[in-house]
């Protein structure tokens, strides 16, 4: 797969736009899915994942052909998603850590019942509920959870995609899991 992609990238570098179309075909579902889980909205996910491919095309000459293309592409896509999430973010930060409570955030201080009334949970599809809870995660936890549990990538690859040390990725996955556990335990 990677070999075929590398061949296509070389063609793109020579100015063959159609070869890029094949690359889009190969990765469109994965990139769209990551964006959808990150943003929780189909239209936004489509816009951002298309932007990601366009950015990849424009910057294709900066891609190191000896590395994994999907890692590079996921990096562009997750960065765009995080930018989009931050633009939409309200002034208060739910993920700001409360001093003295290692690993705990404002999320853990909001009573579960207030956040999601029982009737609402029942009326919603489970999938929507899960997506909604993922969308509530602070972006730094959301990106690692999506990459780890939805794209099933290795910790090492996640650290490359997000350009973070492996230790930071692990910490974020632990905290992300804890935050989600608290949000999803009533489901």
């Amino acid at each position: 797969m990677e070999e075929l992609v590398k061949k296509r990238i070389k063609q793109v570098l020579k100015g063959d736009q159609n070869a890029f179309g094949e690359i889009v075909e190969i990765y469109k579902d994965k990139v769209f899915h990551v964006c959808f889980r990150m943003l929780g909205n189909r239209q936004e996910a489509e816009d951002i994942s298309q932007d990601a491919f366009i950015r990849a095309y424009i910057n294709i000459h900066t891609f190191d052909i000896d590395r994994k293309f999907s890692t590079w592409l996921y990096r562009i896509a997750t960065n765009l998603c995080i930018d989009r999430i931050r633009k939409k973010k309200p002034d208060y930060y739910l993920d700001a850590e409360v001093t003295g409570t290692e690993g705990l955030t404002m999320y853990s201080q909001i009573p579960v019942d207030e956040r999601l009334p029982e009737e609402e949970v029942e009326s919603m599809e489970l999938q929507d509920t899960i997506q909604k809870e993922i969308s509530k995660l602070p972006d730094k936890y959301r990106s690692v959870i999506v990459l780890k549990y939805i794209e099933e990538l290795s910790l090492k690859e996640i650290s490359e995609i997000l350009d973070l040390p492996l230790g930071t990725v692990k910490t974020r996955i632990h905290r992300g899991r804890e935050a989600l556990r608290k949000q999803l335990r009533t489901v």
């Binding site: 899915h33 889980r37 489509e46 491919f53 999938q127 899960i130 939805i150 556990r181 999803l184 335990r185």
Partner: peptide, 30 residues
């Protein structure tokens, strides 16, 4: 609860890109 959380997150179905996605990208290439 942690294991249940993971199972729930992994239970989300894979969704595909909308139709005409590639055409959309190609038409927007500079």
């Amino acid at each position: 609860e942690l294991k249940k959380t993971i199972a729930l997150v992994q239970s989300t179905s894979h969704i595909s890109a909308p139709s005409n996605f590639t055409e959309g990208v190609m038409s927007r290439l500079p």
